[in-house]
Structure formats: C-alpha cells, structure tokens
Design a protein around this nucleic acid. Structure first.
Length: 193
DNA sequence: TGTATGATCGCCT
DNA sequence: GGCGATCATACAG
C-alpha cells in the first residue's frame, strides 16, 4: 500500500520522505510556504518518541502514513510532524523550517514579530506562525486545512541542493545524519554544515 | 558568537 | 519527580 501526496510516497522510510519534502510547499488554512528543513524519526532509534512504543501522546505516529502528528514540546511549543511508513510502524518527519510565501502578514501577527527570517525558522516558531495546535493532530495531510503542493520543476537550472547532518536538540542517536536542509537558505533554523 | 536560564506541562520512571 | 524533537532573553567575551 502506498499513499502519495504532492508527488511523495509517504509509505517510504522517514529519511527518504524527509529529503523529498525539501522544496514542497506546505499551507495550513492557506498560510505557509516552502519547506526547507526537516528531520526524520523512526521507532528503531532512541531519539524518536516511538522508541518506547505507542502512548497517548504519540498514537498518531502509529496510524496510517500521510497524517499529521502534533505534540507539545517543553510545555510551551507545538511541533508538526508528517507520519510515514506503513500503519503501525511508528515513523515520521519533523517539519523544522520553511520559507514564508503565502500569508506572511498573518504569520507576522501570530508571531508578533517583523523579521521574516525568524517567522518559521524552527519547529515551534513554524507551528505558531501556521496556527498549528493539538487540534491538528492525526488529521490527513491531503485534506483541509492542510495543503501540500509538489515541488515545481526547476526551470532547467540545477536541482535543489539538499544537505544532510545530525539532528538538533536531541541527546541520543546523534550519529544519524537525519536532518535535511536546503543548502544556503537563510530561513534554516541553523546553518547546515 | 557563544553559553546560560526561565517558562511550563504532559508523559514516563 | 524529572525530563524533553524549544525559544527568547540576558549576559560574557
């Protein structure tokens, strides 16, 4: 069984989906932009919420692929993930940053901030700018309020340059290069190296 | 440019 | 009881 949204097969392994998501446009209620930074997580690896098995918090990650998994981080921030692999596996992609494109003014209002560079540079900031909360947990990504738009074919120039590196803010499985980012983008939460 | 710290809460041990 | 898949602010150098 495969589920394809915006040209991406969400039943693929998380690192693969994470890499392919770079350049895809994500809108929530018509507000959003181009994904430029992601991280992959899988139940077989101890940095993942799924490592310990299914719980009330992470149940969405064990559901069908192509849905959202939203969790609260540090009691303050919401973070948005895309579920992948087959149902019951436990894998997902954390959306860490995007380049604001549509509804920039509304994002500014939600964030109470002028600097466009910091509107969506980080998972907590991104969720706030897009108005993502627990209410979005377990919702399918191919239906309202979500909208995923396939990466537009580059106009004959070079394909997107995607770099990989260690994930941010974790203390386990640091060796996995499962963070992906668009090379040189100024909207990254941190530069890639 | 870098390191430290507080805010704040659900979930796990 | 403790600890985050974080962020903003406050300082030091």
């Amino acid at each position: 069984m495969t589920i394809v949204i915006a040209g991406i097969d969400f039943s693929a392994p998380a690192p693969e989906v994470a890499r392919q998501l770079i350049g895809v446009t994500l809108l929530v209620d018509g507000v959003g932009g181009r994904i430029i930074e992601t991280e992959a997580y899988d139940r077989d690896e101890p940095a993942s919420h799924c490592f310990i098995g299914e719980t009330p918090r992470n149940f969405a990650m064990f559901g069908p692929p192509g849905r959202a998994y939203v969790y609260r981080s540090h009691g303050l921030h919401w973070c948005l993930n895309f579920v992948c692999r087959e149902p019951g596996h436990g894998a997902g992609v954390l959306i860490r940053a995007l380049e604001p494109v549509v509804g920039v003014e509304q994002m500014r209002e939600r964030r109470g901030l002028e600097d466009e560079r910091l509107l969506c540079a980080g998972p907590g900031r991104l969720a706030q700018a897009l108005g993502v909360t627990r209410a979005h947990n377990n919702l399918p990504l191919d239906a309202s309020p979500f909208q995923l738009l396939a990466r537009v074919a580059e106009d004959g120039t070079a394909p997107l340059k995607v770099l990989a590196g260690p994930r941010i803010g974790i203390s386990k499985a640091m060796e996995l290069p499962w963070r992906f980012g668009l090379a040189g983008s100024r909207f990254l939460s941190k530069p890639m190296r």
